[in-house]
Each structure stands twice: as C-alpha cells, then as structure tokens.
Amino acid sequence: MALTAWSENGGLLPVIVRTDAVSAEAVDLMNNSRPVEIHDGRILLEIGSVPVTLRLKGATRAEFAGNPVRLESADIALPGKTYRFAAKLTNPLDEPAEFALEFRAPAGFRPEKTQRRITVPAGKTVELACELHADETLRPAFGVPVSLTADYRLSGDTVKGSIAIPVRVAQVVPQGATAGRAPDFTLAHRRQVRELFTGDPSRGHLLWKGPRDLSGQVSLGTEGANLLLLVRVTDNIHCQPERGANTWMGDNVQFALELPGRKDAWEFGLTRLADGSPEVWCWNAPEGFAPASAARGIALATSRKGTETVYRAKIPFETLGLTPELLKKGFRFNLLINDNDGGGRQGWISIAPGIGERKDPSQFPFVIFD
C-alpha cells in the first residue's frame, strides 16, 4: 500500500497515519527512500511542499489520524508590536499525552514564552494562545521567507518533530511626502532579479551585472486625497520602443495593488516614452472600475539624467477606491522594473514575487500607512 502527501501552506506539516503495516518508508520524487518508524500502529510523517510517498509494507489499512501540532495565525507582524498565533495540539493516542513545545522565533522577534507544556486528553484538541514580540527595528526583506518554528515532543519521545509557518511582515509607510526620508523598498539584490536568457550563452551580455545595470528605490506617500508613488531607477541604457499595452516590453515600471474587499487587483504601467513624454497604462482593474478611466486619472511626471530615470505619480484615492481608513488597515502592493537595453525585454527586478512571471497577490508585500 502507498500514500502520497504534500503540504500546500508553504511550511512543514506533521501528520499521523494509523496502519497495520509491518514496516514503512518515505520515498521522494527522485526515488530516494528512508525508513519511517511505526509506534503502536501509528506513523508520524512530516510533509512539505514537495510530494512524498509513504510505502506501507504488509498493510491492509491506512487512515489519516490528524495533525498532532498545527500553528496558525491571521496576524500581520509590525515593528514594535505583538504578533499573535495559535498552537493547536491534537492527541491521536488512546490515553492522555503531554505535549512539550519549544518555539524558535525568526530574526527580529522574541517569543513571549520559549517553552510550553500541556497535557491533552485522549482524542482531544487543545488550542494555546501564543505571542511573539517584533523588534522596533524590524525591517522586512520581501522575497525572503520568514518562518516561526516549533519543535515538539509528545509523550516523551514517542512522537517528535518540527513544524513551521510563514510569518507575514508588513511594511509601515509614514503618511505625507516622499522626500527627505529613506525609500520604503530597495530593488538591488540578486534574488529580486528575473532574467529571461539565463540558459542562452549567446545572450550572456544581457544578464544582470549588478545594481549599476538595473536597480531601484521605491517610496510611497500621501498628499491630501492622493497616493504618491516615487520610483528612482538606475539603468545603464533606457530603451522604450513601445506604447500602450506593450510598454512592458521596454523600460518601464509596473505596479499592482490589491485592496481589501475588492475582487481582483489593480495593475498599472508607468512609462517614459522614446520622445521623453510620460504615459500611464492600466492592464487590470477590480470589478466595477474602468482601466482606461483609471489610467487617465493618474498624473505622471518622468525625468532622465545620466543613468537615472525618475517616475513621480500622483494617484487620487477615488481612482483606486482607496480611503484613509484603508490606508491604516493596509493593502497589498508590489512593483517591478522592466529592462530592455535595445535587444528586447531581457528581464526585470521586483520587490517580491507574484507580479512578473505570474499574477499572485498573496505574495505581494503588505503595506500599512501610519
């Protein structure tokens, strides 16, 4: 008998399998196997995002018996604030069991309690309310996973393992002008770059050479009932042969927002055309909004000096359906800078994944205005 399992939440997930198998082994996608212990007819299997197959020798039955430990949170981490999460403990045994937990917090966080112990009745689930405290100096590095890990033991060492969940960290943006302060986002790291010709030796000259080749600084702000967006791009060659919907094929800026309560996300393009004039394009709008009308509502000014191109956009709140309340509640935001040095689009650099290769707002940074 064989079972295949994987986790869709991005972290490790322990599962209990009841079986009458004589022995068991876990097999990965490369057909590498490792033995898995069976305790009193129960197997603990830790699964991740990559599928694994559990082979059960001599088994006539196998059933899912629950997750002994789950970590859950709907919270957003903010500098200097408390991040709340829950540890749900399920006892799959036929007798009371003691759970021992030890939390390993990500950099920039401190757990309220590093260790917790609790006895859970047979077949029951107990939920523990837990907290992390985020440092005042916490600065998210978007695109780099931030995870909270719990090492656990159940009834001594009968069942033990680790479980992790991603921690969502928000970027706090001060309201007001964008001038006179550090940028909210910096695009200058190799992990933020996506190249389209990595495997083509004949186009090696088009590969990213570093921040002087392509990089950017992004600042958000407010002015009255307007959202401000300032993007400073360092690009050794500015090339934009397109207009309108095809401007993503040349040098330009794409940015996207997903507002709470809206069906679908906004996606705009900010472009300095070949003749130096500015252009705004809207590829996508939430239900109830007109893309062309939204693009006309945005005031854009661009400039180019040396290797720096600057984009300054003023976006009325009403154009986006944005309100002062939503600024404080927060929304998802992402941005990329396209690169074309004259031989076609060669790639881009983005704040975080989810806007370039495929559209996935769940990967966008979460922004809160303070």
Rank of each mutant, 00 (worst) to 15 (best):
P96A: 05
A141R: 13
D151T: 09
L56H: 02
V126A: 05
E131F: 10
L56F: 08
R55I: 10
T125P: 06
T60N: 11
V69I: 15
L93N: 04
R61N: 11
A77F: 00
D94M: 12
D94C: 01
K113C: 06
A105T: 13
I118K: 10
E112Y: 11
I43T: 04
L54M: 15
R104F: 08
E72G: 10
R117G: 02
R139F: 03
E46G: 15
P51M: 01
R55S: 11
E102A: 10
T90G: 04
P106Q: 03
K57E: 15
T149I: 12
L29A: 14
A59C: 06
A74G: 08
F99L: 00
L138C: 09
T125M: 09
G143S: 11
E72A: 14
E98F: 01
D94H: 04
E95K: 13
R42V: 11
S73N: 14
V126Q: 05
Y83W: 12
L71A: 09
R104Y: 08
F109P: 00
N67R: 05
T82C: 03
G108A: 05
A26I: 08
A65C: 11
R104T: 09
T60E: 13
E95T: 11
P106I: 02
P68N: 12
T137M: 03
A141C: 08
L101E: 00
V36Q: 10
R116A: 14
V27F: 08
S73D: 02
L128H: 04
H133P: 06
I76M: 14
P106H: 01
F142R: 00
P140D: 01
V146Q: 07
E46W: 04
S49F: 07
P111T: 09
L89A: 04
N67M: 15
Q115D: 08
K81D: 03
T82K: 14
K57G: 08
F103I: 13
L78R: 15
T90I: 03
H133I: 15
A26P: 01
T114C: 00
I76Q: 08
R139M: 09
A26M: 11
R84Q: 12
D151M: 09
A107M: 13
K124G: 07
A26N: 07
A134I: 10
M30L: 14
E127Y: 00
T82A: 12
L132R: 06
L44A: 15
L89E: 03
S33M: 12
R84V: 10
R117L: 10
L93D: 04
T60M: 03
R104E: 15
L89Y: 02
T137S: 13
E37R: 11
K57T: 12
E112H: 13
R104D: 13
K88I: 08
P140L: 03
R116Q: 11
T114W: 07
F109T: 00
E112Q: 07
F85N: 00
H39M: 06
T149K: 01
G66Q: 05
K113V: 10
N32A: 09
T149N: 05
A105K: 07
K88H: 04
